[in-house]
């Protein structure tokens, strides 16, 4: 049973992969001299690595049926605090060695990310407020805090290790892509192999059913917001490594791009659904459209239109699969919830 359904899942992955390859061939042929180059490959993968990590931060929340509009603000705040430590602007007298500063800076960034996740989680899970409202308010809160810290100025410069992360390659593959791949493998493990992952999915698929399984709702949501904050912080570090500068107002558009990617990966088609690896593939898909069209000389208006059209096409193609997906979820949730039919 599981195998059959698994194959069905694979079919979606394979079709996404096919779409991606076909798109790469078509769009690449507009300007093959520039598109099929190592340089463009590296440029594309560096971009998609950044979007990809934000998409993970979004996915973690979406899977449990919410929406996190504060990922970019959290990322900026975390990176600004972490970066200030790395640059010696904060605690510069106490921590002197560059390596120690780097490590403490990373730690600070991650801690801030997770803490802001706790704040979001407290409001959403603890008090039962609407995720959209809470995260859009905390988004302003965090961005405002970052503005207070930086006074509107950019913090310029980055330690060697950070700037190398953003620009260097390992055997022709950018470090950033490897980092993103690592994050995706971690997420794949969490969402396919652990009880927490299954709980998140069940929560997204049928929150009412989950309520009967004791008070784990709170813990699941809290954990997922913390995880989202963690990935946001990593995203902040990635952005930092690409720019070697920190700003309080960086990248609002990344939120919607992250949503698009997650959506294409299928997380919303079925509440509680979405495969981590599908998201990884749709990242390539979106990036190929974006870079390919730019290289072929069309404007971003065209890109947006094609993004939107492709998304809707994929959605429509996937509609009949909804019911099967739901039943698979129940199996995965390890009998945490009473086996009620939720497909009315």
């Amino acid at each position: 049973m599981k195998r059959v359904l698994g194959n069905k899942q694979n079919r979606k992955t394979i079709s996404l992969l096919l779409i991606t390859v076909v798109l790469a061939v078509i769009i690449g042929s507009f300007n093959p001299d520039k598109f099929f180059t190592a340089q463009n490959f590296q440029s594309m993968t560096r971009q998609l690595a950044e979007i990809g990590i934000y998409a993970l931060a979004m996915f973690v929340i979406v899977v449990s049926g919410g929406l996190n509009l504060s990922i970019v603000a959290v990322a900026n705040l975390a990176a600004i605090c972490g970066g200030s430590v790395m640059q010696g602007l904060i605690l510069g007298d106490v921590i002197v060695s560059p390596l120690a500063r780097l490590l403490v800076g990373l730690l600070v960034a991650v801690v801030i990310g997770v803490l802001s996740g706790v704040l979001n989680g407290y409001f959403v899970a603890g008090l039962g407020l609407t995720a959209v409202l809470v995260t859009s308010a905390t988004s302003q809160l965090f961005q405002g805090l970052a503005l207070v810290i930086t006074k509107g100025n950019a913090i310029v410069g980055a330690p060697e290790a950070i700037s190398a992360l953003g620009t260097h390659n390992l055997l022709g593959i950018p470090y950033l892509l490897l980092l993103a791949l690592g994050c995706y493998i971690v997420a794949e493990f969490v969402f396919e192999k652990t009880a927490f992952g299954a709980q998140c999915r069940l929560l997204g698929a049928n929150a009412t059913a989950n309520q009967y399984s004791g008070n784990s709702n709170y813990k699941t949501l809290m954990k997922s917001y913390m995880l989202s904050g963690f990935f946001s912080a990593i995203g902040g570090i990635v952005s930092y490594s690409r720019m070697c500068a920190l700003r309080s107002d960086y990248g609002n558009s990344l939120t919607s791009t992250a949503m698009l990617v997650v959506l294409m990966g299928g997380a919303w088609v079925v509440a509680g659904g979405g495969k981590v690896m599908n998201i990884f593939i749709s990242l390539f898909c979106i990036q190929i459209i974006s870079s390919g069209l730019t290289l072929s000389g069309t404007s971003n208006f065209t890109r947006n239109t094609i993004w939107g059209a492709l998304l809707i096409a994929i959605l429509l193609a996937a509609t009949p699969a909804i019911q099967q997906r739901l039943s698979r979820l129940k199996g995965l949730a390890r009998r945490r919830a009473p086996n009620k039919g939720n497909a009315a």
Partner: peptide
């Protein structure tokens, strides 16, 4: 007008060589 979106455009522009 968004700095992240602009950076992506800049990456693509650089890939144009």
């Amino acid at each position: 007008m968004d700095s992240a979106a602009q950076l992506q455009c800049l990456e693509d522009a650089i890939a144009l060589q």
